Amino acid sequence: MCSSKLQTSLLVVGYFVYLLVGAAVFQALEKTAEKQEKIAAAQMREAFLQNFTHLTVAEMEQFMKNLTEAIQNGVYPVGNESQIEDSNWDFSNSFFFAGTVVSTIGYGTLHPKTAGGQIFCVFFALFGIPLNIVFLHRVGKMLSLLCKKLGKFLYEKGMRKKKIKFLTLLFFLATGILVFLCLPSLFFQITEGWSYSEGIYFAFITLSTIGFGDYVV
């Protein structure tokens, strides 16, 4: 039992250290390139504002194309120059991205654009996805052990096996729905300003690793 707890602790620590290291590397590889994109987008915006009355149709179409590409890359040329310093690749976002990679959710709202970031992402996922599977397997094993203890307790109380199986399954499902759907949805409703149904939708899309990306925290 002690060895099992130690293994679980080491796995949890290793899992989060892996995510933290990945987040730090993604931030280092992507943040500078993103800043350059923001500067270029700001310059494009200023040039448009100064010359928009004299632009030809072709120049306007090129501006719209550049604007669309900037937005697709997560750069929004609005506001003042101080917003250039605000990065999508700060440590919290980088950590979030690392989690979406190893869990195979892949919302698509944040992705590496540099060659170095893309290559690192391949190797990070290559080792991170199996690690995530092992981590989730351990979580499932712990929940299964909890159900077994509940079943043993009910059996000692004289309850029949069929009823015990039904109650342990019900406990397992109820706990999963509460912990992974109901409570997170309430949290998302409070922090993100979504409706509760939107929170449920986001939680399910995330848990199922579908990850459309239409809702992202």
Rank of each mutant, 00 (worst) to 15 (best):
T8M: 09
C182I: 15
M142F: 09
E46S: 10
K157M: 08
Q62D: 11
S87Y: 02
V217R: 10
A24M: 07
F95Q: 03
L110M: 11
T168D: 04
W194V: 09
R45F: 06
D90W: 00
I205E: 15
F124A: 03
A47M: 13
G140L: 00
Y15L: 02
F26T: 04
E81A: 12
T206A: 14
I105Y: 03
E37R: 13
F97G: 02
F171P: 03
F172M: 12
S195G: 13
F26E: 03
V134K: 08
V13A: 15
I205S: 14
T168F: 00
F123V: 14
V102T: 11
F212L: 12
S92Q: 13
G22L: 00
Y215D: 00
K161H: 04
G14Y: 03
L181D: 09
Q189D: 10
T8G: 10
L186C: 12
V102Y: 12
S195F: 05
G211S: 05
V102M: 09
L136Q: 11
T8E: 11
S92R: 11
L126M: 09
M64S: 14
S185T: 10
I205R: 12
S195W: 06
A40E: 10
S3T: 13
A125H: 06
T168N: 03
I205M: 15
S9N: 09
E198H: 14
F187N: 13
L136M: 11
A174Q: 07
M60V: 06
A98L: 06
Q62T: 07
A41L: 05
S185K: 15
L143C: 08
V75T: 06
G176V: 12
I177C: 09
S87Q: 02
A115Y: 10
S94W: 00
F127K: 01
I71F: 04
T56Y: 08
I84S: 06
K149M: 08
R138A: 02
D214I: 15
G99Y: 01
K157F: 04
G213Y: 03
L67S: 07
I39C: 06
T53L: 14
Q83I: 03
F212H: 04
L181H: 13
E59Y: 06
F120P: 01
K35C: 05
F95A: 09
I190C: 08
K152F: 08
L20S: 15
S197R: 09
Y196A: 11
S144V: 04
F180T: 13
F212R: 05
L181S: 07
R45Q: 08
V25H: 04
T104N: 03
I200L: 15
Y18Q: 02
N93Y: 09
L126I: 04
F120T: 02
L126Q: 05
P130H: 01
N66Q: 14
F204I: 12
K148P: 00
V122G: 00
A23K: 01
S144N: 08
C2G: 10
I200Y: 05
G99K: 01
A203I: 02
S82P: 09
V102D: 08
E61M: 10
S3A: 15
F52Y: 14
F97R: 03
N51H: 14
V217A: 14
F135P: 02
A115F: 13
T168I: 05
Y76W: 01
N73G: 15
C2Y: 14
N80K: 03
C121S: 13
G106L: 07
N73D: 13
T68I: 04
L55D: 01
A47T: 12
M142I: 15
K38S: 00
L181A: 10
Y107P: 15
L49Y: 10
T104A: 04
F91P: 00
